[in-house]
Simulated assay, not measured.
Amino acid sequence: MIKRSRTIYVATMLAGLAGLSACGSQAASTDSAADLPVPVAVQQSAAPLNPQGPGELPELSGADEPPADEPPATEPPATDPPAAEVQEEEQAAPAPAASPTVAKKQRWVKIFSGPSQQDITPPKSRLTGSKTVELNATENEQIGTYVTDGAGRTLYRFDNDSNKPPKSVCNGDCATAWPPLLIKSPGKIFPDGIDPKIVGYVERADGHCQVTINGWPVYYFVADAEAGDINGQGLNGKWFAIKPDGGKTAATPGPLGTK
């Protein structure tokens, strides 16, 4: 009995570690159970019994026949609404939003053609990756259009990195100050305002997968406390909020942009 319990415990640990597999490994998907049909219990009420016995129709209370010398009352024929009203109703009805489709695949990561139609809850911590990542184009009066994650947190690029080929050189203490945006297996990325064809990932030195835009690895900044913060903008002249095309946004005026 003890031997069996240990076997179950080890199997459970291995199943948990599968979700933390390295960047290049395909983790076993646990979504199959979610795809199973859910049975719906339908309760049908029994047909009422005929108190008059089989072969006889039940009496209809309140159904009086019209007098023989009077013609039965008839309802006026239904008239169709004018064509102009029908056309106006068709124009007023909004067209349903098209579901995003898979625009690109990079091994076990699917990049979709647009934002998800379902609400996605991003991880609270910037240090943990996620199987589902949102990228949104966001406007800012100081620096222009830049990219945020699903929680509105600013994403940056590092001039010392490269995009051809994609490579991150921010490791160790650098990655502590600038946590990379990680994608886990099996991953899905939903970009809004970013061309899905230029979205992907790169394998880091530690084996994890980091999201890229036009080949540039993207990061958070540890000093950004709330959505919309851009405290890392222009830091050391090398860190900039990333644009939807992968370029650098303009440095902020004043001390922040000249550090």
Rank of each mutant, 00 (worst) to 15 (best):
M1N: 07
M1E: 13
I2D: 09
K3W: 03
Y9A: 14
M13V: 15
L20Y: 07
S25G: 00
S25L: 12
S32P: 00
A33F: 12
D35W: 05
V40R: 11
Q44H: 11
A47E: 13
Q52C: 04
Q52Y: 15
P54D: 11
P54N: 06
G55A: 09
L57T: 13
E59M: 12
L60T: 06
G62K: 10
D64T: 11
P67K: 03
E70W: 01
P71T: 13
P72S: 11
P77R: 07
D80V: 06
P81C: 01
P82L: 01
P82W: 00
A84S: 14
E85F: 04
V86H: 00
V86C: 02
E89T: 05
E89H: 01
E89K: 08
E90L: 15
Q91R: 11
A98P: 00
P100L: 06
T101G: 06
T101N: 02
K104F: 05
R107D: 14
R107C: 00
W108I: 04
V109N: 05
S113N: 10
G114V: 11
Q118T: 11
D119N: 15
K124R: 12
S125K: 10
S125I: 09
T128Y: 12
T128Q: 14
K131I: 04
K131R: 13
T132C: 01
E134M: 12
T138F: 10
E139S: 13
Q142G: 10
T145S: 07
V147Q: 02
V147L: 04
G150R: 08
G150N: 08
R157A: 13
F158Q: 05
F158G: 00
D161Y: 05
S162D: 09
N163K: 09
V169E: 02
C174R: 00
A177T: 09
L182I: 14
F190G: 06
G193V: 08
G193P: 10
G193T: 08
P196T: 07
P196M: 04
K197P: 01
I198K: 08
I198T: 12
Y201E: 07
A205V: 11
A205E: 15
D206Q: 07
G207K: 04
C209D: 09
Q210T: 02
V211H: 03
V211K: 03
G215P: 00
G215F: 02
W216Q: 06
V218Y: 04
Y220C: 05
V222H: 12
A223H: 11
A223T: 11
D224N: 15
A225K: 14
A225C: 04
A227C: 07
D229S: 12
G232E: 03
G234R: 11
N236M: 13
F240M: 04
F240V: 00
I242K: 01
K243T: 15
K243N: 03
G247W: 01
A250W: 00
G254D: 08
P255D: 13
L256P: 07
K259Y: 06
